[in-house]
Design a binder for these strands. Structure first.
Lengths: 238, 238
DNA sequence: AGAAAATTGTAACAAATGTTACAAAATCAA
DNA sequence: TTGATTTTGTAACATTTGTTACAATTTTCT
């Protein structure tokens, strides 16, 4: 998909403002002038997409590192019945499918759609490997990026492995109140959390209510307060 | 844990047979003499553990790359009630927790126990980064290793996201019969698959039976044959 | 081959979750 | 602020899953 599309000439350009890239995980710890120096020395492409455009198709090969320079894109899965399930948003200056550039399955696992007008920077894999070998900060940063991805997924699986919603919730709450904090803010809506747990929304709501009724937690809006840590821990042994 | 233990002198040695490392994912594509040359040039340690020994404690910091030179180790989680859940076996010549050497959370997520007499090779993170920068094959291999880990976890989450066991099973079966093959071998026992799905074993057995009764698949032992692909696909839209 | 161990099928029942629907509450946007 | 939209609580009921138990079958080990 990406490689077959034709764009008007102005969609490609050789120079740009590298300042925005200081925020990118890949360039963390590198000064903007330094980033500019590094990038001007290597082959790369820029492409722009209008809001709503399909940028890559699920199943397309991943042959390059793709960084969102500006705008926001989303990953989405399409199931058999054609229904679309949103997976995640990737705002600038994030990278697309960085865990699929290497490894055995170099295929996009999702469709990628531009949520807003978007500009991408594209660096071929071979070029990128050379970049990694020549710059230890970028190497470290990239290793951090894909390792963080793994760590995120590992943690998610830890929730999903609990058979009951109570178990998942207990694990989730304990996880967020590790450092002696007794309360924390559910950073999302119940609808989103239900999705995250792969569970029906009213079921989650019900279980939250039960935990409160039983005096394990107090929930006021999105603020969760742990009342009985010990009994929460017990729920963790499915 | 690892760094505090004391061993008899013979547990440490400077020279070893590097032939076994040709099989290691980290050294794939490198000849054994080359591996020897690379490894003799860098700082490393070897440690041996008797079968049954606790090698690392869940929560210990990950500061080095650890490769299982010989033997088999297992990762296990311990829950609140002290019950132990086995996570995975890592036979030689695999690496321990490679996705936790980098990234933000450099802590072992599990206990690691020697299943048999085991020898480990330990390379400090800083030394390892230098190795990655000096050898593009090792760099590629390591990127492949942690990327494969991510890809494995992503796929697992795809199953777990289905709310019903039927959905999980359908996705699982379709996944394994992509390349026009209509049948495949369940590479594990139902008990293990039930664990993988985070689901009770009799429930899995029941659903397998239902799929067969309804004529979607045929199951004879561990051999699964797809009969009605279309209806299986439909189950995939939870 | 034969005994022992692990795996599988199955049934009855309890428990948890999903579904649908609707109203109350909170949040967002004009 | 107000009106619109989204989120949340809740209830009734259907469906799915878990639990326990036991026998049949298969695999493993000697």
């Amino acid at each position: 998909m990406l490689q077959n599309q034709k764009f008007p000439a102005y969609f490609y350009r050789k120079n740009m403002d590298y300042d925005q890239l200081i925020q990118a995980p890949l360039f963390r710890g590198i000064k903007s002038e330094e980033i500019e120096k590094i990038l001007t020395g290597i082959d790369k492409k820029f492409k722009k997409f209008k809001a709503g455009t399909l940028i890559v198709h699920s199943g397309d090969p991943v042959t390059s590192l793709i960084i969102v320079i500006s705008g926001v894109v989303k990953g989405e899965m399409v199931d058999y019945s054609g229904r679309v399930i949103k997976i995640e948003d990737i705002p600038a200056p994030g990278a697309l499918a960085s865990a699929f550039l290497f490894g055995n399955k170099n295929l996009f696992p999702v469709n990628v759609v531009a949520l807003s007008d978007t500009e991408l920077m594209i660096i071929e894999k071979q070029v990128f490997i050379r970049l990694l070998m020549n710059n230890d900060i970028i190497l470290s940063n990239f290793l951090d990026m894909i390792s963080n991805r793994s760590q995120f997924l590992s943690e998610k699986i830890r929730f999903l492995n609990f058979k009951t919603i109570k178990g998942k919730l207990a694990q989730f709450i304990l996880q967020r109140t590790m450092n002696d904090r007794s309360s924390f803010n559910l950073g999302m809506t119940q609808t989103e959390l239900a999705d995250y747990f792969a569970v029906a929304r009213p079921s989650l709501s019900r279980v939250l209510g039960e935990l409160e009724d039983e005096g394990l937690i107090e929930a006021r809006g999105k603020a969760i307060k742990v009342i009985d840590r010990t009994r929460l821990l017990k729920l963790t042994s499915d």
